[in-house]
């Protein structure tokens, strides 16, 4: 008898330690990245690192502004493309679609969510980049290589659509049916109900989902690395190439040990991404939990 209780107590303690230790991963990651990037933070101020766009590792000048700007452009564009498509698809799936359509769409979304980013990158270089260079680009600018902000945004948008749609479907289905019934009994059409009741009620959830999608797009590496062109300059238009932060890290990991401060600079880039995404994720998860609770009552 005592032996069984002892086993129970030991297991409990062991699992407790494991759980608490696993929580420390976040702290450890933050500390590790900060520790590695501290040389460059001490040499230049954080403000200078984030707002200067002078990038010449050989001269020891590390300004991240054009990379940050590239990341922001590509991410914003991807959300701008993916949001309307995902909202409409999710509304269709929850309000209108017949069950065979759902049975077809959900596996497709599953697969899209599972396709590795290198395959998205390959698709981007074969389909999207030539399309922009030969078909779309000539209408707007004199010359574009195709490896552009637009290409990055498009590929990223396809990558975040599965995430957005599945979150939206989940959120929309928490809107109580009574609300929708009340709306239709007042003579609203389906779309009016969707727009005035479902979307309005689901607004906090939608915002949280978008924030999650933003952080996914922001951190996506290989696909953007393959289609963005990776030129160190501020992108001026959709048809300019750009160089987002994750691409910078992935592209230079090989030679980063050969230059002083270079490793520290790349770790600083990783730290910036870590902090931004940690913050975004925490906020949106907390909102999502609130949303779920408020509807369950």
């Amino acid at each position: 008898m005592i032996w069984r209780l002892f086993k129970d107590k030991t297991a409990k303690r062991f699992m407790q330690i494991l759980t608490i230790f696993s929580l420390l991963t976040v702290v450890l990651m933050a500390w590790g990245l900060y520790y590695k990037s501290s040389p460059i933070i001490q040499a230049n101020s954080i403000k200078e690192l984030l707002t200067s766009s002078e990038w010449s590792p050989l001269a020891g000048k590390f300004g991240f502004f054009s990379f940050i700007l590239s990341s922001v452009y590509v991410t914003a564009l991807s959300v701008a493309i993916a949001l309307p498509i995902s909202l409409l698809t999710a509304l269709y799936l929850t309000e209108n679609a017949k069950s065979w359509v759902k049975k077809l769409v959900f596996p497709v979304l599953d697969i899209l969510a599972g396709i590795p980013s290198v395959v998205y990158g390959l698709w981007g270089t074969i389909i999207i980049v030539p399309f922009i260079a030969d078909v779309l680009g000539p209408h707007f600018v004199d010359y574009t290589s195709g490896y552009t902000v637009l290409a990055g945004g498009t590929v990223l948008s396809v990558m975040i659509i599965p995430l957005l749609v599945s979150l939206f479907v989940e959120i929309f289905s928490t809107v109580p049916k009574d609300f929708k019934d009340a709306s239709s009994s007042l003579g609203a059409t389906r779309w009016q109900t969707s727009r005035l009741v479902v979307l309005r009620k689901a607004m906090p959830g939608i915002i949280a989902a978008v924030v999650l999608a933003v952080s996914k797009a922001f951190g996506e590496t290989l696909a953007v690395l393959m289609v963005c062109g990776n030129m160190v300059k501020r992108p001026e238009s959709l048809f300019d190439s750009c160089y987002p932060l994750p691409a910078l890290i992935a592209n230079n990991y090989g030679e980063m040990l050969s230059l002083p401060m270079y490793e520290s600079a790349l770790m600083f880039a990783a730290l910036v991404m870590f902090v931004v995404i940690l913050f975004f994720n925490a906020i949106s998860r907390i909102i999502l939990q609130r949303v779920e609770k408020s509807f369950k009552l």
Partner: peptide, 9 residues
């Protein structure tokens, strides 16, 4: 939150 941290980080 950790789920959302990108693999490059």
């Amino acid at each position: 939150v950790l789920f959302g941290i990108p693999s490059i980080v």
